[in-house]
C-alpha cells in the first residue's frame, strides 16, 4: 500500500492541507498584531484580547449563543437519536418515506429558506421572537444532523444482538439501555458535538428567527465584519477556533479510547 503513495498524492495532500489551513493560520497570527491595520504587521501584542473582554456587547452575545447551543444540542440529540432508531430499527411504517425526506432535506436545504419559513411559522402562531424561537429552529436542523450521525452507527450495529437480549428476557427498553446505548454512545456524543457547533456557528437561521434583545455571537460578528476587518474579530475568531478544535480533538481521542476498549 505504502508504495502507491506517490509524489502526486503527497503533493495534493500538502497543497490541500495548505489551502485548508493557511487562511485560518493567517487569521490567528494577525489577531496578535499590534497594529489596528489588519494587513500590516506592527509587532506582537495581546491587546485585542483584552479589548474583547471589555466589550459588553460581545460578552452578552457569547452568553446568548452558549445557552442556545447547549439547550438546542441536547434536545436535538435526544430527538435525533429517536429519529435514527425509527429510521433504522422500526421497520416499515406509514409515512416512512416522508419521514426520511424530512430528515435528509434539512441537511442540504439553503439556510435562507429554512430561516424564512420558520420565522413565518412563528409569526403566524403569534410567538414572540427571541431566544426561544432560535432554540426551536436550532433543534430542528440539529436533530437531522444528529439523526444521520447516530443512524450510520446503528446501521453498522447488528440488530440480532438486541433480539438476543430480548430472547433472554430483556424488555425492549432494557435491551436499548444495556445493549444498544453503550454501542452507539460514541455516535451520540459526536452527534451532540455536531449539533452544538452547528448551533454555535449559525448566522442565517438565527438572524431570521431572533427578535429584539436576542443577538447571537455570529450575528454580532457579521454586523462587525460588514464594516470591515478588525483585530477584535480576529481575536474572537481565534478564541472560537481554539475552543472548538480542542473540543473536537478531545472528543475524537475519547472516541478512539472507547473503540479500543470495546
Amino acid at each position: 500500500m505504502t508504495n502507491r503513495f506517490s509524489w502526486f498524492s503527497a503533493t495534493s495532500l500538502t497543497l490541500g492541507m495548505a489551502f485548508l489551513y493557511l487562511p485560518i493560520l493567517i487569521l490567528v497570527v494577525y489577531s496578535f498584531n499590534e497594529s489596528r491595520l489588519v494587513t500590516v504587521w506592527g509587532g506582537f501584542s495581546t491587546k485585542w484580547y483584552g479589548e474583547l473582554f471589555r466589550n459588553e456587547a460581545f460578552l452578552d452575545a457569547a452568553w446568548v449563543t452558549l445557552r442556545v447551543a447547549l439547550i438546542s444540542a441536547t434536545v436535538a440529540t435526544l430527538l435525533g437519536t429517536l429519529a435514527a432508531y425509527a429510521l433504522v430499527r422500526a421497520g416499515k411504517f406509514r409515512g416512512r418515506t416522508l419521514f426520511s425526506g424530512m430528515i435528509y432535506a434539512p441537511l442540504v436545504m439553503p439556510e435562507v429558506i429554512t430561516g424564512l419559513s420558520l420565522l413565518l411559522l412563528f409569526i403566524s402562531i403569534g410567538m414572540d421572537r427571541g431566544i426561544t424561537t432560535i432554540i426551536l429552529a436550532h433543534i430542528t436542523f440539529g436533530m437531522c444532523f444528529a439523526s444521520v450521525v447516530v443512524s450510520s452507527r446503528l446501521v453498522a450495529f447488528d440488530a440480532s444482538l438486541e433480539e438476543a437480549a430480548c430472547d433472554l428476557g430483556c424488555t425492549p427498553v432494557q435491551a436499548f439501555f444495556y445493549v444498544t446505548l453503550p454501542v452507539i454512545a460514541p455516535a451520540i456524543v459526536a452527534a451532540w458535538l455536531l449539533a452544538f457547533t452547528l448551533s454555535l456557528d449559525d448566522l442565517v437561521i438565527a438572524s431570521f428567527t431572533s427578535g429584539p434583545g436576542a443577538t447571537t455571537l455570529p450575528m454580532k460578528i457579521y454586523s462587525q465584519v460588514r464594516l470591515g476587518v478588525t483585530p477584535e474579530i480576529n481575536a474572537l475568531s481565534t478564541l472560537l477556533i481554539g475552543f472548538v478544535s480542542i473540543g473536537v480533538i478531545l472528543a475524537s481521542l475519547a472516541g478512539k479510547r472507547a473503540a479500543v476498549e470495546t
Binding site: L20, I24, P218, S237, K256
Partner: peptide, 30 residues
Amino acid sequence: APRRWRPTLVMLVILPFWTSFLIRVYAWIG
C-alpha cells in the same frame, strides 16, 4: 496514505469544517 496516518489526516480535513463557517469566510477578506 499509509494506513496509520489516515485517522489523523481525516481528522485534519474535518477540523476546519467544525470551526465557524462565518469565520472561515471572514478569513479570506484579509
